[in-house]
């Protein structure tokens, strides 16, 4: 059956009949990139850059070609982020505040649970603030992560103003000499103006209490999301000046290709990837691994 081949299978099929790098090759390449959610325009752009890649014309076998493509994709990714800082930012003194934003169900709370475990294992004193006072069971979910990680959680009553929980969290972090405060916020869709304003307000309160905070605002994007992720990145960046991306659920069959488009258009770096539901399933983002992932299933 010709349909529903995986990305790797398609490329394999292409390589199997490969003779020379011709126009068909580039069209197939565009198609495969589109199927990884890279998006139409970005796929065209990448294919065009590869069209003018001399090394590709000189490549002798399919492994050469594969390597040239992978190298090129990495360099395209890197070029878009030229001069960008992909490290995590920490306060010079006092608590570092890391705020999490994103649409519903992408993995914000889980990522906090994972990252808190990581920083705690590095000897940092970690605090979590349960500022999702809206979704049923959201506070308990974060508290359960707090229990697993062995870190404290600041929470308010059900349906409390999330800004008040944020305020309590920041105060507790300052008074208790915590190193890192994670602020969990409720999921919200980027086109919901009221909820986006609520988020801005939370951020303002953090800055009011600690002028250079939040030190990071991480947008969590679900790796299975298609073109809408671009819209998410844009609107969350507008409202909370996002400093980086966490790309989750890459343990599934989705490739998360949309981050290439986001990187191209908005110069927002991916800082972390989520690879499962357990505390250990968090990794710093590696462009090489990511691009390899796009080609997963290829023969070596």
């Amino acid at each position: 059956e010709k349909t529903r081949k995986s990305f790797g299978e398609r490329l394999n099929a292409f390589f199997a009949k490969f003779r020379s790098v011709d126009e068909d090759f580039f069209e197939d390449l565009e198609d495969t990139l589109i199927q990884a959610d890279v998006g139409y325009e970005t796929a065209m752009q990448i294919a065009d850059e590869l069209r003018s890649e001399v090394k590709l014309k000189n490549a002798k076998n399919k492994n050469d070609i594969k390597q040239v493509i992978i190298d090129k994709l990495i360099s395209i990714y890197d070029a878009a982020g030229n001069g960008e800082d992909i490290s995590m930012h920490f306060a010079k003194e006092g608590p570092t505040v890391i705020m999490f934003v994103g649409v519903n169900g992408v993995g914000k709370t889980t990522t906090i649970g994972k990252m808190a475990a990581l920083y705690k294992s590095q000897g940092k004193k970690v605090l979590l603030a349960a500022a999702d006072t809206f979704r049923a069971g959201a506070t308990q979910q974060l508290q359960e992560w707090g229990r697993r990680d062995g870190v404290e959680v600041v929470a308010g009553p059900d349906r409390a103003d999330p800004a008040s929980v944020v305020f309590d969290g920041v105060q507790t972090a300052i008074r208790g000499n915590y190193d890192v405060l994670f602020v969990d916020t409720a999921g919200r869709l980027q086109n919901n103006v009221n909820l986006m304003q609520e988020l801005e307000k939370m951020k303002r309160i953090i800055t009011r209490e600690i002028p250079d905070a939040p030190h990071e605002v991480l947008i969590v994007l679900d790796g299975t999301t298609g073109q809408n992720a671009l819209q998410q990145a844009k609107l969350f960046k507008d409202s909370t000046d996002v400093s980086g991306i966490v790309l989750t659920k890459l343990d599934g069959t989705a490739k998360g290709g949309i981050v290439l488009a986001i990187r191209n258009e908005m110069h927002l770096p991916v800082k972390w990837v989520g690879l499962g539901e357990q505390a250990a399933d968090l990794r710093p983002f590696s462009p090489a691994d990511f691009v390899q992932g796009l080609f997963k299933g290829l023969v070596d």
Binding site: R4, D37, V103, G105, L189, N192, T224, T225, G226, A229
Partner: peptide
């Protein structure tokens, strides 16, 4: 909001469970 992967997901669940219906969520977005 699912992208190209929707097909693999739906096929995977359907092949295993023979689902009887689908619910599409988060359509209040853009």
């Amino acid at each position: 909001m699912t992208g190209q992967n929707a097909v693999q997901t739906a096929e995977g669940f359907d092949q295993r469970l023979d689902v009887t219906g689908v619910v599409l969520t988060k359509l209040d977005g853009d």
